[in-house]
Design a protein around this nucleic acid. Sequence first.
DNA 1: TATCATACTTTTGGCAACAAAAAAATCCAT
DNA 2: ATGGATTTTTTTGTTGCCAAAAGTATGATA
Lengths: 235, 235
Amino acid sequence: MAKWNISPVDSYSYEPLRIQVYNVLREAIVNGEFMPDEKLTEMEIAEHLNVSRTPVREAFRMLEREELLTIIPQQGVFVSGIKSRKEIDDIFRVRMELEGLAAYLAAMNINEEQRRRLRKYAEEIEQCIEENDLKGCVRIDIAFHRIIKEATGNKWLERFLDSLFVQATRFRMKSLSQEGRMVNALNEHRRLGEAITGGDAELARRYMEEHIQAAWKSILIVFEEEHGTEAEKEV
Amino acid sequence: MAKWNISPVDSYSYEPLRIQVYNVLREAIVNGEFMPDEKLTEMEIAEHLNVSRTPVREAFRMLEREELLTIIPQQGVFVSGIKSRKEIDDIFRVRMELEGLAAYLAAMNINEEQRRRLRKYAEEIEQCIEENDLKGCVRIDIAFHRIIKEATGNKWLERFLDSLFVQATRFRMKSLSQEGRMVNALNEHRRLGEAITGGDAELARRYMEEHIQAAWKSILIVFEEEHGTEAEKEV
DNA sequence: TATCATACTTTTGGCAACAAAAAAATCCAT
DNA sequence: ATGGATTTTTTTGTTGCCAAAAGTATGATA
C-alpha cells in the first residue's frame, strides 16, 4: 500500500517530467497530502512517480522558491508549515492589501463573462449553505476569488495572490467549519460581488479588505485552538 | 576573452554549487550583464563557471520561478525582459501598493538603528546630488528602500518587494539620469524618511505611493523613448 | 546504564553519458 | 539564386553512478 495518495505522471505527455512532478507535488502539498515538516526524500518520490531523481530534484528547487518546500543543504527537503502566529499575521497583512487591490482593479476591468460567473457563484454558494455542504463552500470560495484575481488582468498580482492563497489553504476548511463563519462569508461574498459587478471599485476594495480580515480572525481562532495562544506559550 | 563578466564560483565554499550559480546568475541578470531575451545554454554557463550542467540547471529552475528567466521546454532558457508598457504598469501598480504598505509598517516598527541609518542615507544622497554622482544615487536609493523593507519585519512582504524591485532595476539608472528626476527623488526621499522616522504611518504610506508613482512615470518616459509610444505602434 | 567513539547505512550533491528533440547546415531540384 | 527536403550538429531531457556528508546503529568503556 502506498504511503501517499499522489497522482502518477502521464508517460504519454509531452510536458517535461520536471513539470509533471512539480504539478503533482504542488497539488499534494496544497491538499495536505503531506504533513507539514515532513521530510521528502528524492528517491521515495522518484519511485512513487516512476521517474529518476533528476526531475524530482528540479521540481524541489521550483517548489522551494514558492515557499512550499524548505530545503536545508546536505540535509533534505521538508514540507513548509505555518508555525507561528506571526507568520499568519504576515501573510494576511499582505493578502489583505493585495486582495483589496484585486477587488479594486476587478471592479474596473471585469467583462461580461466574468460578471456572469460571479453572479452564478453567488447563487451556488447560497445553495451550499442551505445544504450545509462544507466542501462545496470551499470550492466556490476558491472559484470566487479566482474570478476576481483573473479579472484584474495583472499577471504579477495574480502570481502573488496565488502564493499567498495556497498558504492559507490548509486552514480554510477548518476555518469555514466554525459556527457561523460560513453564513458570514456568504454575506461578505454577496455584497463584494455586487460591488464588483456594479463597478464600484473603492467599495469593492473595502468589502474585500473586511472579508479578508474576517477570514484572518477566523483562522487565528483555529490556529490558537491547535497551538495554544501566544499568552499560553509564555507560561 | 570571456563573453560575459560574471564572477566565478568559490570552490572552497561549503554552499552547494546550485546556490552559488544561482547567486552569480541572479546578479548578472539584475546588473544587465545579460541582454534581455538572450538565450543561455547550460553548457556555456557551466564552462564559464567550471561546474557541470546539473547545478546550472537547478539554478535555472529557481530563477525561472522569480521571473528572471523564461524557460521554453525543449528550446532553452532566455533572460526575461520587460516587453510592454502594460507589463511596466502591472509591476508598478502592485509595487505602489506594497511599498506603500511597507512604509506604513516601517513607520510603526522601525528601531533606533534603522532610524539612524535612514537619516544617514538622507545626508549621503544630498551629497551625491551635489556631486552629480549618478551611481551613488542609485546605490543609496536601493539602500533606502531596503531599510524600509527590512523595518517592516514581514518576510512575505520583503520577498514580493524583492521580486518587483529587480524588475525595475534595468530602468532605474536611465530613469534617474533624466533632467530633474534626481532632485525630485531626493525631496521625495527626504519627506518620506521624516514621516517614517517620525512614526506617522499614514503619511509615510502616502508619500511612498507618490514616490513610486513618480518613479513609474519617469520609467515610462524612458521606456517610450526606447520603444515608441503605444499610439505610435498602432500606425 | 549512560556516554562517547567508531563503523555502517542512507541520502544528498555533483558528474558524465545516453536519448530525443530542436536548430543549423547541406544538398538538390526548380 | 531560391525553396524545400534531408542530413548533421547542437542542445535539452533523463538516467545512473560515484563521492561526500549526514544520520543511524553498534559497541566499548566508565
